[in-house]
């Protein structure tokens, strides 16, 4: 039971993903399709962000004691990589490893950073899609796909 509940973040991701995908496939209304696409993308954001979280980890802000600047960043990334492994171990239901061994535990910042980029991409996609819908609406006077296809078939 804990295995299922312990992975609740993945259940949410899968639920959102399938919801979005279903809307994309099943809806004829172009705006709704785009909303579905957004939900679909959001699920992936969640997938990334939750995977970066390390139990009891804090925000990855380095203290000065860690040495030189550039070295520090490298170090941080290394941590991130290692925690990726740990997270996987945790996800499979094992006991948290090495949390106490390190004085300060950081969450992995990389996935969140990646998602910033992905969100930007998502916004651009949505904006473009909406712009296209506006043009379609100007041309056809409707945003229902079946009606548009019907009009194309008759023309």
């Amino acid at each position: 039971m804990t295995e299922i509940l312990g992975l609740y973040n993945y259940w949410i991701v899968i639920f959102l993903m399938m919801t979005g995908f279903y809307i994309v496939i099943a809806r004829e209304n172009l705006i709704k399709t785009i909303i579905g696409l957004n939900i679909f993308q959001t699920s992936v954001f969640l997938l990334y962000i939750t995977m970066g979280k390390v139990t009891h980890g804090t925000a990855p802000i380095l203290k000065a004691s860690h040495g030189g600047e550039s070295h520090g960043v490298e170090h941080g990334v290394e941590h991130g990589a290692e925690h990726g492994h740990e997270l996987h171990a945790a996800a499979e239901g094992h006991v948290d490893l090495g949390v106490d061994a390190v004085k300060e535990v950081y969450s992995n910042p990389i996935p969140s950073v990646l998602m910033l980029t992905a969100i930007v991409v998502g916004i651009a996609t949505t904006a473009l899609a909406l712009a296209l819908v506006v043009r379609i609406r100007e041309e056809y006077g409707t945003i229902e796909e079946d009606e548009i296809l019907e009009m194309d078939r008759n023309s």
Partner: peptide
């Protein structure tokens, strides 16, 4: 525009699939 929108929807689904794959690889 309609052809572009169709491409956009299918293409975004494809790219998102790719992104999911990257995420899982990164996780491992």
């Amino acid at each position: 525009p309609l052809a572009a929108l169709h491409y956009l929807i299918i293409g975004t689904v494809g790219a998102t699939f790719f992104l999911i794959g990257i995420g899982l690889l990164y996780q491992m």
